[in-house]
């Protein structure tokens, strides 16, 4: 059985008839990094939000490790899904410093365990000395790494990344892509990356899915798979 299974998923915004996603299916193996590539409006971010539980699908099923998350009869709230997410604008809490941001998702741990986990995460993203800084005191690249550390700290089963590179300078991007690849490799976490930049997807993902609501576009190479939503 696949690690993440999405079956016949449909979604349309409340009050509109046009579907953003229509009968969409996808399976992910454990440890796989899948890229969702597509233009804005192709429904890739919506798919991410449906997996996260931030939206409820109009039809279809999502399950993780065999456990149903969304279906006709069941809806698991986002905080109970064990899914981590890196937002496009990182959404670091402005009223908490870096350490407290990272510690935010750590629950059921003792004070010491939590402290150690935060230190580990800071080291993982190479920001060991930045725990006391506030988000606005960090550069864009540093903020992005904190966002990753925060999402990974509670050891989610699945990591979702929504255009994590869109706020970065193109010069920075290459270095950061490499770092992220290393990070994903190190943690071995199953991930979905949403992006509109095929270089991002090529560099990071094991498998790329092109999503389009218009003309089907075939891509060369067996890494690619085409999905019309």
């Amino acid at each position: 059985m696949s690690f993440v299974s999405i079956h016949a998923l449909s979604y349309s915004y409340p009050g509109t008839a046009a579907a953003v996603l229509n009968d969409f299916s996808l399976d992910l193996e454990q440890g796989e990094v899948v890229g969702l590539l597509g233009q804005s409006g192709s429904g890739k971010s919506t798919l991410l939000r449906l997996i996260a539980g931030l939206e409820a699908p109009s039809q279809g099923e999502i399950s993780i490790q065999g456990e149903t998350m969304s279906s006709r009869h069941k809806f698991v709230q986002p905080e109970r899904r064990g899914v981590g997410m890196v937002f496009q604008d990182y959404a670091l809490f402005p009223h908490m410093n870096v350490s407290r941001n990272i510690a935010f998702g750590l629950r059921g741990l003792s004070r010491n365990e939590r402290k150690n986990r935060v230190t580990d995460m800071l080291e993982l993203v190479k920001l060991a000395d930045y725990g006391h800084r506030y988000p606005h005191e960090l550069s864009g690249g540093q903020q992005q790494r904190v966002a990753f550390a925060r999402a990974l700290a509670p050891s989610p089963r699945l990591l979702l990344m929504d255009e994590p590179f869109s706020n970065l300078d193109s010069e920075l991007k290459n270095g950061i892509r490499k770092e992220l690849k290393e990070l994903l490799h190190q943690t071995g976490i199953t991930s979905i990356l949403v992006t509109h930049d095929h270089e991002d997807a090529e560099a990071l993902c094991d498998r790329i899915i092109r999503m389009t609501s218009f003309m089907p576009e075939l891509q060369a190479g067996k890494k690619h798979q085409l999905v019309t939503s």
Binding site: F87, D89, F93, G105
Partner: peptide, 10 residues
């Protein structure tokens, strides 16, 4: 975004 991030963090 902040509220969604918090929900995603459990």
């Amino acid at each position: 975004r902040y509220s969604e991030a918090s929900r995603m963090l459990g």
